[in-house]
């Protein structure tokens, strides 16, 4: 499913195509071996982490408020499905577009500062969304929106059972991964990396770095919204958990663990963390402690992440 691909612009070589084909086949066969709802959840978080990594890994921007996009999209898609009875793909589209708009506003404010301030500002902005979700009428306060219906895709294709909704989510997943891959392997992605390495040098070369940062922020927010909107459809609940600062931290960890310099590393990190939470769910606060410990270990000893480490070992340049 995940491929160690060195970020390189413009090339679309045969190995990549083969690995993609293999991943597609694996994706098609997996739900017969593993519980589909778990897989769908993992895919949503994989999209979320890869979208987040567009900022952290490829632009050098640490957003500590990405739960705002993930969580608000989850609420909006849940509301569109339940209250408006919108079809599945339109609800998710609505959530994605709203997240993009929110991303444009937050991005425009946050890119006025760099580095640590950028992180603090995004965190503070996302906390506003948290309070909005807590106080607004349509979000259901502490209860959230429960019993979200899985409305038919295009109003025609029934996805109420887990297997058919799995394939619907898999299509979204493949689309999102391809989008991330294209953004990274484009001239635009090259400029982003130039900004990451040295913003002042990119500026001196004539790039309007603020515009690039804003655009990648919006793309990242939109894909995070896609992930959140899909997640509401999968687990059939939208709740405050998805808008908390802990969620913003979790996506940072997924990215760090998987490898923030790599395209698909964050997806690996997301699958690992979701699996971990799934298995240790009954242990309550121990999960938090363990996740914190993984965080510390990653920062202290394992900064390249899993895929980054693999790349460094098996020396592809």
């Amino acid at each position: 499913m995940s491929v160690p691909v060195q970020a390189r612009a413009g090339r679309f070589n045969a190995v990549h195509v083969l690995v993609f084909a293999g991943a597609l086949i694996a994706l098609g066969a997996l739900p017969f071996a593993v519980y589909p709802v778990f897989l769908m959840k993992a895919m949503c978080f994989a999209i979320f982490a890869c979208a987040f990594n567009l900022l952290l890994g490829f632009s050098g921007l640490l957003s500590f408020g990405h739960a705002a996009f993930f969580g608000s999209a989850s609420y909006l898609s849940a509301y569109a499905l339940s209250a408006w009875g919108l079809s599945a793909e339109l609800s998710i589209l609505f959530a994605t577009v709203s997240s993009a708009a929110l991303g444009a506003v937050f991005g425009a404010i946050a890119i006025r500062r760099q580095g640590i301030y950028f992180a603090m500002i995004t965190l503070a902005l996302s906390q506003m969304i948290y309070f909005a979700a807590l106080q607004a009428d349509f979000t259901g306060g502490e209860d959230g929106i429960q019993g979200v219906t899985r409305n038919p895709v295009f109003g025609l294709i029934d996805i109420t059972d887990n297997l058919s909704s799995y394939y619907f989510v898999a299509v979204i997943f493949v689309f999102a991964m391809f989008a991330v891959y294209r953004v990274v392997h484009s001239p635009f992605g090259q400029v982003l990396r130039a900004i990451r390495e040295s913003e002042s040098r990119a500026k001196s070369l004539g790039y309007h770095t603020d515009q690039y940062k804003l655009v990648v922020f919006v793309i990242s927010a939109a894909l995070s919204g896609l992930a959140g909107g899909t997640k509401a459809l999968v687990v059939q609940v939208a709740s405050l958990t998805d808008v908390t600062w802990q969620m913003s931290g979790e996506v940072v960890l997924m990215t760090l663990l998987g490898g923030m310099g790599t395209v698909f590393g964050p997806a690996v990190g997301a699958v690992l963390i979701v699996t971990l939470q799934n298995f240790l769910n009954s242990f309550g606060s121990l999960v938090t402690i363990l996740i914190g410990a993984i965080f510390v270990v990653c920062v202290m000893l394992f900064r390249r992440g899993i895929l980054g480490e693999l790349q460094a070992r098996f020396g592809r340049k």
């Binding site: 640590i116 992180a119 309550g284 121990l286 938090t288 402690i289 996740i291 914190g292 965080f295």
Partner: peptide, 24 residues
Amino acid sequence: HLDHLYGLLLTFGLVLIVEGVMVD
């Protein structure tokens, strides 16, 4: 010697550990 963001990330990890231990 690294990017200052790593300090932020490390202390964030510590928050999770300390809060988790206290809840426990």
